[in-house]
Write a protein that binds this DNA or RNA. Structure first.
Lengths: 145, 145, 145, 145
DNA sequence: TTTT
DNA sequence: TTTT
């Protein structure tokens, strides 16, 4: 009859959410999310990061744009959706996104003060202790989307 | 630190699993899986189907190739992986797949006898009656789940 | 900060849903759900069944009481809740329940016609043939999922 | 055929893992895990905490005892199991547990240094910034198990 | 108490 | 390309 299409992610935002307002007043937000996995390969600790395109609609988009920021840790629940689009050269392409159905902020409370500035190398005492997630993203910079 | 990357699907196979044997003897199987969602739009019942690329490795690939067939209902648990490849025109493309970590067959037992032919409109009486063939599965006894 | 408390089950109802109407007009439904696991132990196929107490509230309770029946296969998503109560002898006891947040009917469509009688060994021909009654469901059109 | 019995939790340990070694050398670890949910009730922010009995076996128990500690944030995936036992007065009781199948440590890296001392009111600089989760547990002290 |  |  019906089916199940469910995605559960816990990871860090690669960028601040990007918010757009469509005609009709609908809000959409999106951001890349990194989920990392570490495993041993030939006795060495290897980290593999997977990047996900997260899309949020309406009220969820507005909450996300208010509370989520680059580097923050979030739990996201949603569904997979593959859509096609035309790139600049009019070539048809496909992209798979995770359409969020709800999310929960994880980590320290201080990480989620609304309206806090996002300076990558902030000297904010609360950010100081965090691991160096954000800078390493800036360096590699090769999000596949 | 670490993250979570989990996908849970319940849907029907769009095709029989396609099995390949890589150099080194590693088996890979893949198939498209459809998850359907029905909702009301302007008083009308609309069905929206999402297609997922499922990939299975090693032992899981072998079990899948033995028991799963076009049309069957399965529960699949896995993780998202986006990989790039070059198409025939040497254009770099991305595809997102669900790498299965385990699966469970749902539905009637008769749907899962190994080696059964896949005729779309089969009039095989066994497909209409539940609980048939259960003994033959008991006899082979090698269902690893 | 916040947490995640999520349960995902696919199993068969052990009984028809039991519906109660609380003061204030709130509807609650509940039923036992069996999830079975089979594994090999000393070369023998062993089945282990786990029973879950499922509880549904309000609209979800009403839909469940209309469509779910003893023996049917369902996907249930919800959260764990342990509550205390006093038994007949005034002894404090604890019970853990799965409070359903949504559910999806799996299996053949004919399994889910509303108001069908529940005779365990029914010889009703409609239970043997797939795809029957589909139009009658289309006509009523009020399946909210 | 088969079923699905899956639990996904993100929460904080209420106590250090308790490790036991059974005859035959099997290791079992267990601890209470709190998942909190906050919602608005009559305009006020209410927090509701659910406690879960987590049980881990063998290698997973050993890893847990090494890395997990009271107050730490973890993602746990497992299955529900209700078992009966006799209490001191020989009364038969039931308890529902989450048998962990894997777990992932979340939060700051410094939270998971192995062998770190667990003093509730530690003056360890890394613990200082944490929110006051641990003390509030000590005060209420009413774990239902 | 279900189902396969 | 599946299924209901």
């Amino acid at each position: 009859m019906s089916g199940i299409n469910k995605v559960i992610l816990v990871g860090h935002l690669g960028k601040d959410p990007e918010v757009r307002h469509l005609e009709g007043g609908v809000t959409v937000a999106s951001f890349p999310l990194a989920t990392s996995e570490t495993f041993n390969k030939d006795g060495k600790r290897v980290e593999q990061t997977e990047w996900h395109n997260i899309v949020l609609w309406r009220g969820l988009a507005e909450v996300a744009s208010k509370y989520l920021q680059k580097g923050k840790l979030v739990y996201i629940e949603g569904k997979l959706r593959t859509r096609s689009f035309e790139d600049k050269e009019k070539v048809k392409k496909y992209v798979t996104e995770v359409v969020a159905e709800n999310f929960t902020m994880l980590g320290r409370k201080s990480d989620f003060e609304p309206n806090a500035p996002t300076n990558g190398n902030s000297s904010n005492i609360n950010n100081k202790i965090e691991d160096d997630f954000s800078t390493s993203i800036d360096e590699t910079g090769d999000l596949p989307f």
